[in-house]
C-alpha cells in the first residue's frame, strides 16, 4: 500500500477510463494524458491500463510502508526518494523504473513545464473499481475520492506481471504546443473565416481549466447560426465553442453530451499534449494535413 502524506494541489487515481456508458450520461474519464500513464505502467511491467496516480502541479509526498517499483512520467518534476535508512535523500529520475524501499518516501517538486505527472506502481493502485474503472471522475463524482493527506491506496498483486525490462524511456518534452485539428462536426455553425481564425493567432490557457476541459482565451470564434444546437454526443478533444466565442478543449472528464457547437476536434495523438497545458501557457491550432 501507499499512504498519501500530501497530495499536492490536486491528485487523483486514474486508469484508462470508463468506456461504454456515455449513453447513460457517464463521462469517459481516465488519465488526462493517457500516453504518459501508459508509459509509466509499461516501465514497471504493468498492463497499460492499470491505475496510477495523476498529480496536478506536482507537490505530493507519498509514503511506501512496503517497498515497490515505481515509474514517474508526464510533466517533469524534481523527485526525491528519502527515508528508509538512506543517509542522504536521492534524486530519482523521470521516465525510468526505480525501487522505493520499505519505509521510503517519494517527494515531488513543482514541474517547470507541463501540468500532470503520473506515478505508476508495479501491481497498480487497487482501489475498488466503479463501473469497471478506478478513475476519479471530477465531473460526476464517480470513482474514488480525490486524494487527501492520509488517504491509503492499496497496491495490486505483482505475480504474473511482465519483467521490468526498460532502463529509461525518452520523455516527451511538454513544449510550445501546436495542436492539430480535424474540422467539424459543426464548423458550419460558424462564419466562413472561423476555422482560419482558430488556426491563426495563439490562444492562452485560462485559470479555470481542469480535467473537464482546457479553457482558452484568444480570437473570438463567431457564429453564423444562432439558436441552440440540439444536445448531441461529444468526444474527447472536441473544441467546443460556447456563446462567448472562446473555445474549450474537452479532456477526459468532459460531459458525454453537449449543446454548444464543436468547430473542430483534436487529432487523437495531440490530446495528451493538450492535457499538459497549464494556465498561462499559449497554444496554437493547425489543420491536420493528411487524413489517416
Amino acid at each position: 500500500m501507499i499512504e498519501v502524506i500530501k497530495p499536492g494541489p490536486y491528485a487523483t487515481v486514474q486508469d484508462l477510463g470508463r468506456p461504454g456508458y456515455a449513453h447513460l450520461g457517464v463521462p469517459y474519464s481516465g488519465a488526462a494524458d493517457t500516453t504518459a500513464l501508459r508509459l509509466a505502467n509499461r516501465l514497471v511491467g504493468n498492463p497499460e491500463g492499470h491505475a496510477g496516480i495523476e498529480l496536478t502541479f506536482g507537490g505530493a509526498s507519498l509514503a511506501f510502508p512496503a517497498g515497490a517499483w515505481v515509474a514517474v512520467t508526464g510533466a517533469p518534476c524534481p523527485l526525491i526518494s528519502a527515508g528508509a535508512g538512506m543517509t542522504v535523500p536521492v534524486r530519482a529520475g523521470m521516465g525510468a523504473p526505480f525501487w522505493v524501499p520499505a519505509g521510503g518516501e517519494l517527494r515531488f517538486g513543482t514541474p517547470a513545464r507541463g501540468l500532470r505527472t503520473y506515478v505508476a506502481v508495479r501491481g497498480g493502485i487497487a482501489v475498488e473499481p466503479v463501473l469497471g474503472s478506478r478513475s476519479t471522475d471530477s465531473l460526476s463524482g464517480l470513482g474514488p475520492a480525490v486524494l487527501r493527506p492520509g488517504t491509503v491506496l492499496p497496491v495490486g498483486p505483482v505475480d504474473g506481471l511482465a519483467e521490468i525490462s526498460v532502463d529509461v524511456a525518452p520523455l516527451r518534452e511538454p513544449g510550445p504546443a501546436v495542436l492539430r485539428v480535424v474540422p467539424g462536426p459543426r464548423d458550419d455553425w460558424f462564419v466562413p473565416g472561423a476555422l482560419k481564425e482558430l488556426c491563426g493567432r495563439p490562444y492562452e490557457v485560462t485559470q479555470d481549466s481542469n480535467r473537464v476541459g482546457v479553457r482558452l482565451s484568444g480570437p473570438v470564434l463567431e457564429r453564423a447560426r444562432q439558436g441552440e444546437l440540439p444536445s448531441e454526443g461529444m468526444v474527447a478533444g472536441a473544441v467546443q465553442v460556447p456563446p462567448s466565442g472562446q473555445p474549450i478543449i474537452f479532456l477526459a472528464d468532459h460531459p458525454p453530451t453537449g449543446g454548444y457547437p464543436v468547430i473542430a476536434v483534436l487529432s487523437a495523438a495531440d490530446l495528451s499534449t493538450a492535457a499538459q497545458l497549464r494556465p498561462g501557457d499559449t497554444t496554437r491550432f493547425t489543420l491536420r494535413k493528411t487524413p489517416t
Binding site: 468506456p19 461504454g20 448531441e232 454526443g233 468526444v235 458525454p256
Partner: peptide
C-alpha cells in the same frame, strides 16, 4: 441506436443517441 447495439460493428466503444443525432466512437 438499437440496430447498432444489436450489431456492434468492430471497434465501436460508444453509441450515444441524441434528439437528432447518434454519435458513434470507434477508435
Amino acid at each position: 441506436d438499437a440496430l447498432l447495439r444489436a450489431e456492434r460493428p468492430g471497434s465501436v466503444v460508444e453509441i450515444v443517441p441524441g434528439p437528432e443525432t447518434v454519435l458513434v466512437v470507434a477508435p
